[in-house]
């Protein structure tokens, strides 16, 4: 999976690049509008992670160029501009999704996976993890070939964990993923605990291994081993 990361801020760029490489992507970077412009002209990418505010140009123009060239690459906009108008403009121009800085890395990965799934597999794609098999387009989950019935939120939670295997996911990132940015007080994290407890119970009833680990005080992790 080949990505182009367009981000002008060096510190953020290296962190994002490290993270994306750790998550198994082939990640190229561009630090300016010109570099990004050149790369999208020369190479094919599965997805472009695009910052809008670049020192020498507007990221929206790169999006326009991609669309004008009929590129198959998905586009995920990341911008510090919380401007709602930018979000609308980006989506109108054909961006697949929009993340406002600052964002959780896990959320970025989850969105990227969703975009790539939509664009590349047209539904013929499954996620396999140890004894788990998930068909995202059909929203079907199997544990050791037995179907598993989950509530909507439990399913979202499982998918979020599966997008970031072997990574500590903070409670905050999970809460935000499940119900937007509404969660801003400590006691509202209780619901994550409830959902996780239910999810674990359902998995164990079907005989799944216990691979959802609790990282005390921090969050949760889908363990590979």
């Amino acid at each position: 999976m080949k990505l182009l990361l367009v981000e002008d801020e060096p510190a953020l760029r290296t962190t994002l690049m490290d993270y994306l490489r750790q998550s198994g992507y082939v990640c190229e970077v561009a630090g300016s509008y010109e570099q990004a412009r050149e790369k999208v002209k020369l190479y094919e990418y599965d997805c472009v992670v695009l910052d809008l505010t670049l020192p020498d140009g507007n990221g929206l123009d790169i999006l326009r160029a991609l669309k004008a060239d009929g590129s198959r690459a998905g586009v995920l906009i990341i911008s510090a501009r919380a401007a709602l108008d930018d979000r609308l403009a980006g989506l109108d121009l054909g961006a697949d999704d929009y993340l406002t800085k600052p964002f959780h890395l896990a959320e970025l990965n989850s969105r990227l996976r969703a975009i790539i799934r939509r664009r590349q597999f047209q539904g013929h794609h499954h996620i396999a993890f140890r004894d788990l098999l998930v068909w995202p387009e059909q929203a079907e989950v199997f544990v050791r070939e037995q179907p598993l019935t989950l509530t909507r939120k439990e399913y979202d939670l499982l998918l979020f964990l599966l997008a970031n295997p072997n990574r500590v996911l903070t409670k905050e990132a999970i809460a935000e993923h499940l119900c937007g940015d509404a969660v801003d007080s400590a006691d509202s994290f209780d619901f994550i605990y409830t959902h996780l407890k239910n999810l674990r119970k359902k998995l164990q009833e079907k005989g799944a291994d216990n691979y959802i680990r609790t990282m005390y005080g921090v969050g949760y992790k889908l363990s590979m081993d």
Binding site: L16, P102, H104
Partner: peptide, 9 residues
């Protein structure tokens, strides 16, 4: 955003 990403890492 940098702080948040670095801390998550």
């Amino acid at each position: 955003a940098i702080m948040q990403a670095k801390l998550e890492q």
